[in-house]
């Protein structure tokens, strides 16, 4: 059998030259695998959270604001908020979207800061990471509990774009936080007659309620 030798197309040559150039310029930023980047993100979140939780004698307000800082830095809260609203996002007016995203952040911060604060003493052990597709990675981890109880399984969905990594979902024992919120919110809209405003009414009340619960003045 005779092998047909085809001329190398110009773009292949360009690609080779380009890769050689890259090699000579050291490791480019995107050479780290997404799996590695995502694990680094979760590890860094865990370290910062542990440091925060070890600070004692902080006021409720201060703790809430530190928690908000972590949320903004590590989570794609805006993207999660939109996904949670699902098809109703498109129906919402600009003003409704704006208020919704702001309420959504407050809702997560005030609703989860207590659960977050309760998790002191546990250690997060990162097990491994799998790339789901071009855009997202799942980081598998477990919470090791001090009493020697069975570890709690926690999976993190991490989305990435270029060098930006953000958590898009947390799954505790296979239960997705984003999915639960999505069901909850969609049902609230249904019960309220199918419009986004009805959800905003309930969210406003809920955020106010959670703030009072935490002892934070409105």
């Amino acid at each position: 059998m005779r092998r047909v030798i085809r001329p190398v197309p110009a773009f292949s040559l360009l690609a080779i030259v380009f890769s050689l150039l890259l090699l000579t310029h050291g490791k480019p930023a995107w050479a780290d695998t997404p799996a590695q980047g995502a694990q680094d993100l979760v590890r860094s979140l865990s370290d910062e959270a542990t440091a925060l939780l070890n600070k004692t004698g902080e006021s409720s307000e201060k703790r809430v604001e530190s928690f908000r800082g972590l949320l903004r830095q590590y989570f794609a809260s805006s993207a999660i908020g939109r996904w949670v609203l699902g098809r109703y996002w498109r129906q919402a007016s600009d003003a409704e979207r704006k208020e919704y995203l702001s309420l959504f952040e407050d809702y997560i911060v005030y609703g989860y800061v207590k659960r977050f604060s309760d998790y002191s003493g546990e250690q997060l052990k990162i097990l491994r990471a799998t790339e789901n597709d071009q855009r997202s990675v799942t980081v598998f981890s477990e919470f090791i509990r001090p009493g020697g109880d069975k570890p709690i399984r926690v999976d993190w969905r991490v989305g990435h774009k270029g060098d930006t990594y953000r958590i898009t979902d947390v799954m505790v024992e296979g239960t997705s936080l984003s999915q639960t919120l999505r069901s909850d919110f969609a049902s609230t809209i249904h019960q309220g007659g199918g419009n986004v405003e009805s959800l905003l009414v309930v969210l406003r009340e809920k955020v106010a309620e959670l703030k009072i619960d935490l002892g934070i003045s409105a």
């Binding site: 855009r135 799942t138 598998f140 989305g159 898009t168 979902d169 997705s176 984003s178």
Partner: peptide, 27 residues
Amino acid sequence: EEQPAEPATTDFPDMSDMPELDEPLPE
């Protein structure tokens, strides 16, 4: 293992229609 190879939930926030991962929230 404690964990199956694939996460059970296949539906999750999709990044494809979300261009601004680090978009700040409205103040």
